[in-house]
């Protein structure tokens, strides 16, 4: 640990680049690399055939012969549409960065939690609150978690206020323990179960 000018201990500057999943282009890249290798194989094969090292017909001149005399048609336009659409997909994949996978954790440490981890902590925290029969958390978006809480309905008492009190306790517990960890928004939904 180093010290600043006042002699206090300072923490190292953590890299602020958020963790990301691999971009989709990573899947396309090996396919494109294989296409390049295939071009090499065809080129060497054609060389071997034209030099008489092997028997067969070279593919490059045959390909040109096949293209010669091509004229516009609806079929070719349809093929062009497919090619253009494939190209647009590749352009989109090339531009699309990897999605952010984690939320920044509280504190000075370079701590990151996935939304699923926040949901698991939220579920466990809600489950420990008195009056909760069961709790289930799910991620609704990258920064939102919804906790479904089941409480019991007491026919003798004012069930609505009873359930409201449990919901409030759950919300307080989540706001105190889990929400400050990443700043993720946690929504609580309550369902009453007849006793």
């Amino acid at each position: 640990m180093s010290r600043d000018t006042a002699g206090r201990r300072t923490r190292p500057s953590a890299p602020r680049t958020p963790p990301r999943a691999r971009p989709a282009a990573v899947v396309v890249a090996p396919v494109l690399a294989l296409v390049l290798i295939a071009v090499a194989v065809v080129a060497v094969r054609d060389l071997a055939l034209t030099q008489g090292w092997a028997a067969g017909t070279p593919w490059a001149p045959s390909l040109l012969d096949g293209l010669d005399g091509l004229s516009p048609s609806a079929g070719l336009a349809a093929a062009g549409t497919l090619v253009a659409l494939t190209g647009l997909v590749l352009v989109w994949l090339g531009l699309k960065p990897g999605r952010r996978t984690h939320l920044r954790g509280a504190g000075e440490a370079d701590l990151w939690l996935s939304t699923g981890a926040v949901a698991a902590l939220a579920q466990s925290t809600a489950d420990r609150v008195a009056g909760v029969v069961s709790a289930d958390a799910s991620r609704t978006s990258r920064r939102r978690v919804t906790v479904d809480v089941v409480t019991t309905a007491n026919p003798a008492a004012d069930t609505h206020s009873d359930s409201q009190a449990v919901t409030e306790r759950v919300r307080t517990a989540l706001d105190a323990d889990v929400a400050p960890l990443t700043g993720a928004s946690i929504k609580v939904r309550t369902t009453e179960m007849p006793r």
Partner: peptide
Amino acid sequence: IDRAVTFLAGLALTALGLLLIDWQY
């Protein structure tokens, strides 16, 4: 590199496809 080559290959295919369509229409 992966993203750049994917993007360029996509641009080339898109241009080729549009050229084929425009040749007809």
